[in-house]
Design a protein around this nucleic acid. Sequence first.
DNA 1: GACAGGAACGAACGATCGTACTATTGTCAT
DNA 2: ATGACAATAGTACGATCGTTCGTTCCTGTC
Lengths: 204, 204
Amino acid sequence: MNAATATTKSTKGEETRSQILAAAVEQASTAGFESLTIGTLAEKTGMSKSGLFAHFGSKLDLQIAALDECARQFTEQVFLPAMKSARGVKRLRALFENWITWPQRARLTGGCPIDSAGREYAHQPGAMRDAVMERQRLLDRELSKAVQLAVDAGELAKGTDPRQVAFEFLAIVLVYHRSEALLGAEDARKRARVAFDRLLEQNR
Amino acid sequence: MNAATATTKSTKGEETRSQILAAAVEQASTAGFESLTIGTLAEKTGMSKSGLFAHFGSKLDLQIAALDECARQFTEQVFLPAMKSARGVKRLRALFENWITWPQRARLTGGCPIDSAGREYAHQPGAMRDAVMERQRLLDRELSKAVQLAVDAGELAKGTDPRQVAFEFLAIVLVYHRSEALLGAEDARKRARVAFDRLLEQNR
DNA sequence: GACAGGAACGAACGATCGTACTATTGTCAT
DNA sequence: ATGACAATAGTACGATCGTTCGTTCCTGTC
């Protein structure tokens, strides 16, 4: 590799693989991970079924790879940027704002894929469920930690239960993503922000 | 029909049709409406594919019928019972409590099918989406109305925005159904109730 | 320029999908 | 009891599913 893509070493295979995953993530965001299909994905990427299939070895592996890619994008575009804000309420706000604007910014026309995956596999045992719940748990922990930091900084009341606040934080995010289609993104966002402000206010 | 099932007139056909729908609702609650399959459903009800198919005429009609059945059960088991409580906060509480305990009471092992449908079709145009969103809108309106009654009764503050409260009400319900699988039903319910109490408190 | 290895393709498989037909069974008013 | 009609079964169709296999193409090394 002489002077390749500069940022990342990438053999040809890795490159097309990530193209496939990009298509898969978009598909999953609109119609869910269960809708991922070798044939459809092959058509969307202009490949043959077998050529695409070879990158993963099984449909399940493809689904899991797509889930990982979602998590990676979430970390990169929602979580890490928020970490640049000062710990405390400011960071919580950044996290919230990044999160609810993420699908739009990332051109995930179908909304938050994390939401999608959570609902799809919550009640269906298997490898996907395990993977989803592990991610979900991690996210919950990080969220609680961010709340705790706000408490430590004295920006939220001493007695605050971080996990309860994280619970309600997630509640607002979920209902936002749900209501977006129903109320329109604008109204939904306004309501979500009002709810979030009150959540912070309440625990101040 | 001499003295049939007493409560409902029901030809043989209608009876098996409702059996099919019962199976469909259960299936949809765990794996979503998109997972409904003529073959699987036929096997589960002990019928032939063609025999089952004849009841609906198309898969789409089957899905819509299953959705209607969900809505019917919701009305019957969640909404109407709450209407027996005195209007105001008491009724809101009943609505909330009935809602979060509904899947368990109705043996919908996969959680709230309304939640399922909302997420599945929010971003996918078509007849199912239209049907889901119509139901969703109706529910939203009824919920807001119930909140308004609490305001009128002086149990919530004068300036309260009923639709905002309905929004946050729904937020808690959604996150509850999501977290149930993650945290266990017991913890999730506790957190949901805390959140709900605070929502009421806040607007008092 | 020959060669190796990775990457993509084409064709085919058994299974299952939704749906259309026809035939058989069951139910109910007369 | 019989005839009409609703309810269910049987069979077959084209399409698509995930997957396998053998072949071809591309790329970089000696």
